[in-house]
């Protein structure tokens, strides 16, 4: 029973941490309608920077801010390549992602472990002061949940500002943004900056949680994020009042739970990406057929 409960808590924690990434993808994929492959590079970028800073004993909370800043820079790069150099969206992301692979190796090597002695956000003074008596596992859950909640609320607030509304408009019909005498390119770039800052933040928190960085940890993160966003929006399709950010968070948790189920069922870890791809295909097909029949109605 204890093992079961532990698995539940750790799965939920994983889902919440990765929800930061799915919120980022929600911005690029759902709002901007931009298939942003930068994610596979900006996720490990956030982790790489964090791993290096943590091993040097930098304040763990500060590493999150730094990770967001470098993630934002990655998003800016993709945005500039796409908008100013007029490279297609998918290719712009691939270019940045490929470049980031080398950059991540330069920053942190192919693997970097953070020693037990080093503080992470889950063992920081703030965390210990507030809930030092509870287990590490519970602290991870609460802190991840708090982080996601803050990000979600800030995003929801942002989407209701003038600037946020303009961002929503650009993905919906960029022609309207031009008629408002605004440069649609700059608005798209801003969206990519925010999204990749969140993705890198997710990478950073994952690095805090695992106390390690590996150069290949970004592979498939974009697909995960897409799947989470699509699961979320499919689940809540009929409930108009559920916000997109909430759907992305729930999608992430459901997805991680599915993967955990597959592992618990005895599936070899080597097959995980295959299962991910298959699951993604099923979700896509299920989601789009439902959407079509509803659109006709």
């Amino acid at each position: 029973m204890d093992v079961f409960l532990d698995t539940c808590i750790s799965t939920l924690t994983q889902g919440l941490i990765y929800a930061l990434l799915s919120c980022g993808i929600y911005i690029t994929y759902k709002i901007l309608d931009f298939p942003d492959l930068t994610v596979d590079g900006s996720f490990p970028l956030g982790a790489a920077v964090t791993a290096v800073l943590l091993t040097r004993g930098v304040n763990p909370w500060l590493t999150l801010a730094v990770a967001m800043a470098v993630g934002a820079a990655a998003g800016l790069t993709t945005g500039l390549i796409h908008v100013r150099l007029k490279v297609r969206d998918l290719l712009a992301g691939i270019i940045t992602m490929t470049a980031l692979f080398s950059i991540n190796l330069q920053i942190a090597g192919s693997n970097l472990n953070v020693e037990r002695a080093m503080k992470t956000i889950f063992t920081s003074k703030l965390a210990m002061g507030l809930m030092g008596s509870s287990t590490l596992m519970l602290r991870k859950l609460v802190i991840s949940a708090a982080l996601v909640l803050v990000v979600k609320l800030l995003l929801d607030l942002y989407f209701r500002t003038k600037n946020g509304l303009l961002l929503r408009a650009v993905g919906d019909n960029d022609n309207v943004v031009t008629s408002l005498a605004r440069d649609k390119g700059s608005v798209k770039i801003l969206g990519l900056v925010i999204a990749n800052a969140l993705v890198a933040l997710c990478g950073a928190v994952v690095c805090h949680e695992q106390r390690s960085f590996s150069a290949t940890m970004g592979t498939g993160q974009m697909v995960f994020g897409l799947a989470a966003v699509i699961i979320g929006s499919t689940l809540f399709r009929r409930l108009g009042f559920v916000k997109g950010t909430t759907a992305a968070i729930v999608g992430s948790i459901v997805y991680k739970a599915c993967i955990q189920l597959a592992i618990t069922a005895g599936l070899p870890a080597n097959l995980l990406k295959l299962i991910t791809a298959a699951l993604f295909l099923v979700i896509l097909v299920a989601g789009s057929t439902k959407g079509r029949s509803k659109a006709r109605a």
Binding site: Y158, T161, K162, G164, L165, L166
Partner: peptide
């Protein structure tokens, strides 16, 4: 300006 004030 499209700033951070409420849209509506």
């Amino acid at each position: 300006p499209f700033g951070l004030t409420p849209a509506v």
